[in-house]
Simulated scan of single mutants.
Amino acid sequence: MGVRIGNLLNRVAGAAVLASILLVVSTGLAIWWTARQDSRPASDAIVVLGTAQYNGVPSSFFEARLEHAISLYEAGVAPVIVTVGGRAEGDEFSEAEAGRAYLAAGGVPEDALLAVEEGVDTLESMRVVSTAFAERGWASAVLVTDPWHAMRAQRMAEDSGIEAESSPTRQGPAVQTRATQFRYILRETAAYLLYRVTGESVAGAPGIG
């Protein structure tokens, strides 16, 4: 009897391990697949997820996102570009402010820019953007971020009440090498699964958060 119970427990444990592995693998593949998509329907706004900036100068990750947002704006995807992201401790500029200044310098009209200067992670950023959308009667957005971050960002935007699609960047440090891509996919897989289980966000490395 004891042997049978032991065998049953071993099978249950084995099945649980296999299910966990399949969940991780399928999530990683979904992140990879989403990263390869480029959805750009006509929307109320283009939303650029903030990341590191240095004294008002966007990092290379952030610059890649902003340049992609300019191309979407010029293609007529939306009449407004929203930058989002707060200040880290000691920073003089917020991510949203640095992004807005970069876009203005790049030729985007002032009245086509909105900086939402809050948000320390993706989830908080999506929530404050959702509030800004509600105040203006907007509903739909095209999200601009790094490819591997797109699926989590889109999920969090939708959970915050935004009709979201994603148009990830196709340049910048996040896509330079296969090793870099693999590392970010692994990190995003963990972050996405944590969000689905806990409903909480995590602060990521530059280019991910």
Rank of each mutant, 00 (worst) to 15 (best):
L22M: 01
Y184P: 00
T51E: 04
A157T: 09
Q154E: 15
S125R: 13
T131V: 14
L123K: 12
S26Y: 03
D44S: 03
G50K: 02
A30Y: 00
M156T: 10
P147T: 05
D44C: 07
R40L: 06
R11F: 13
L113F: 13
E97Q: 15
R183N: 10
R183F: 12
A132E: 15
E163P: 01
F62S: 05
V47I: 13
S71E: 14
V25F: 00
A104V: 12
P58A: 01
Y102T: 08
S71F: 02
S201T: 13
V202M: 14
G28H: 05
E200L: 11
A15R: 04
T189N: 08
S20F: 11
F182E: 07
W138I: 00
V24W: 00
A139R: 15
P41E: 11
L114F: 11
S167D: 13
D91W: 09
A141L: 02
G161H: 08
E92T: 08
S71C: 03
Y73N: 01
V57D: 11
V108I: 10
G172Q: 09
D111A: 07
Y73H: 09
I46N: 12
S130Q: 04
T27F: 01
A64E: 06
S43A: 15
Q176K: 13
S201Q: 07
V57L: 02
R100D: 15
G28E: 02
A75G: 04
A164F: 09
A164I: 10
L114M: 12
A150I: 04
F62K: 04
P206G: 04
A104Q: 13
H68P: 05
P79M: 12
F61Q: 01
V120G: 15
D146H: 13
V77P: 07
I81F: 07
V128E: 12
I5D: 04
V84H: 03
S59F: 00
G28N: 06
A104P: 03
L114C: 02
